[in-house]
Simulated assay, not measured.
Amino acid sequence: MELEIFKDNFQKAINVCERITKKAVSLPILQNVLLKTNNSFLEITTTNLEVNIVWNVLAKINQKGSLLINASFLNNILNLTTSEKVIIKQENGNLVLLSDGQETQIQGQPVEEFPVITNIEKEYKWQMDSLVLADGLARVAPIAAFSSVRPEIAGVYFSFQKNKLKLVATDSFRLAEKTILLNSTKQSDFQDACFIVPQYTCQELIGILNQEKGVVEIATDLHQVLFEIKGERYNELKCCVQGRLINGEYPKYEEILPQSYKTRVRLNKDVFTNRLKGAGLFSSKIFDVKIDVLTKEGKIKLFSQNASVGRNEYIWDCVAEGQNESVVFNYKFLLDGLNNIKSPDVFFELNGFDGPGVLRPDGDNSYFYVLMPIKQ
């Protein structure tokens, strides 16, 4: 094997692959990446048996071949390489990297020891903007939580319904939903289906999707999901992310969502966020902050107290409707919801001291965040 490749493009792929290999500490062979020439591309493959990534990087191929190299060591070498381009050669199963004034040899591993990645049977297939999917996943994926009793909530629920995709995650104390509209001129492109993708897979996918604007195609079978990411300009295949699906039925969350509210408050998001952070400094070990809404007076009050620190209270004007309310929430959970809202103002809907609260962006019906109060 011999090829010439842009160092930054090569390292971008190796960076992602190295993160995957670090999860495979029990199997040393999985700490390597498989480098293989494929037409005008260098194909870089890694797996930790939970997530598989195949990355295609444009290269000038002089001689075909394949190598299996330790990902972390290769990435460290690339970090110290200042050349715009590097030359990669294969000599006796080892990798030789040539750049300006540098020649490095890295010991390779037997290629045949690397596990074979099987292709999935594509029963369903959808297409959307890669940055839109990345944004949607970033708003819900952090909320998912590992549970040995309820493994289905350890991932993000993908629900394709006609011309839209709903992304949902919950940890049983809070829930977030983001709706993405799918653009297509053919009604046959819309297929209804639902599945659960592990949180870890989604988090890795977010980082890859955010690197540049493009198109992502999603395909599934009964047990696996495949994300094929293509560039915007030339529609070439950049990267494939393949992972297992979580078996099980996702909770029927729509049945328990509040259909109305007893009190609704409109707040400036930045002001609310900053004052929540201040109140949180005086909260107890359960991160509790008491929220009082005085509807007739048009006031909202945040109160927190800690016997070993002191007490804090904020009172300011707001636009409110409904009845007066006094509710206690986990302020960290509230901040998580506010941080995923991009509009300047938010609506905060309350349903009594023991009912769920709902955060909604002003002017955006595609996202909402539900959280349960702390019962006193």
Rank of each mutant, 00 (worst) to 15 (best):
C202I: 14
T220R: 00
I77K: 04
E18D: 15
Q107F: 15
P151Q: 09
V216E: 02
Q259T: 12
D292F: 13
L205E: 07
E249M: 10
P142E: 06
G278T: 11
E2F: 09
K85E: 07
G298T: 09
L74Q: 08
Q323N: 12
I20P: 06
S147Y: 12
F303Y: 13
M1C: 04
Y234H: 12
F158A: 05
R233V: 09
L237A: 12
A193W: 11
F282E: 04
N56G: 07
I286S: 15
F287H: 14
R266G: 06
R19I: 02
K375T: 12
L267M: 07
S83T: 03
F146N: 13
N306C: 05
Q11H: 07
D129C: 05
T45G: 07
P142R: 04
G231Q: 06
Q90C: 10
F282P: 05
V111Y: 03
I153L: 04
Y200H: 08
F303R: 07
Y200S: 12
W316Q: 13
V346M: 01
N210A: 06
V57P: 03
I300G: 05
C202W: 00
L267W: 03
L58T: 13
I20G: 02
E212Y: 00
L338H: 06
V370G: 00
K125A: 11
I61F: 04
Q242Y: 02
F329A: 06
K299N: 03
S130N: 05
T201V: 08
V168P: 02
A71T: 11
G322P: 06
P373L: 13
I218N: 01
Q187T: 15
R311S: 15
R150Y: 11
V319D: 13
L131P: 01
T37E: 08
I291Q: 08
N52W: 12
I374K: 08
V86C: 01
K60Q: 06
K332N: 07
Q161M: 07
L35T: 13
T179Q: 06
A71C: 12
K342D: 11
V111M: 00
I286K: 12
K375P: 03
E325K: 05
C202E: 08
G357R: 04
D317A: 15
Y157P: 06
I117V: 15
G363P: 07
N339E: 10
F333C: 09
L131M: 09
E232V: 11
G322A: 06
S188K: 14
F10N: 01
D8M: 06
S147N: 12
N235L: 10
L131T: 03
G363K: 02
N56D: 14
K290E: 11
L167R: 03
G136K: 01
T37A: 08
V197Y: 00
Y157S: 05
V54K: 15
A141P: 02
P28V: 11
